[in-house]
Amino acid sequence: MGMSNPYAEWFEQLRAEYGEQLRQMPLPEGLPEHLHALVLAQDEDAITLMLKLAWQFGAQAGFAAGQSQDRTPTPPRRSTVQA
């Protein structure tokens, strides 16, 4: 086994804790279909951009909050865009 991935571990922890609750949360109309089309088209660039936007708009804050509670490892800081 290789080195652990702190982001994958964090995601799995969030999925275990909040997955069922978040499955019930609706996304804006058209977004699920658009994401599905991007996956089918294997448009990794567009999906990565989507993830970067989500990270800037909230996930980064959530990760920092979890880190301050000693629940996750420290991720590398690479962000240059300020939310």
Rank of each mutant, 00 (worst) to 15 (best):
G2F: 05
G2V: 10
A8R: 11
F11W: 12
L14W: 02
R15F: 08
A16T: 00
E17Y: 11
E17P: 02
E17T: 02
Y18E: 13
G19S: 06
Q21G: 07
L22K: 07
R23F: 14
R23L: 15
R23W: 10
R23Q: 11
Q24L: 13
Q24H: 09
P26C: 11
P26G: 04
E29A: 12
L31T: 08
P32C: 07
E33Q: 15
E33I: 04
H34G: 05
H34R: 15
L35Q: 00
H36G: 08
L38Y: 09
L38N: 01
L40G: 09
L40S: 07
D45Y: 09
A46V: 06
L49W: 10
L51Q: 10
L53H: 13
A54E: 05
F57S: 10
G58E: 01
A59G: 06
Q60C: 09
Q60P: 04
Q60D: 08
G62L: 01
G62N: 12
F63P: 00
A65Q: 10
G66I: 02
G66N: 11
Q67M: 14
S68K: 14
Q69K: 14
Q69V: 01
R71K: 14
R71G: 03
T72I: 14
P73N: 04
P73Y: 02
T74F: 08
T74I: 07
T74G: 02
P76N: 05
P76L: 12
P76Y: 05
S79N: 07
T80K: 07
A83P: 13
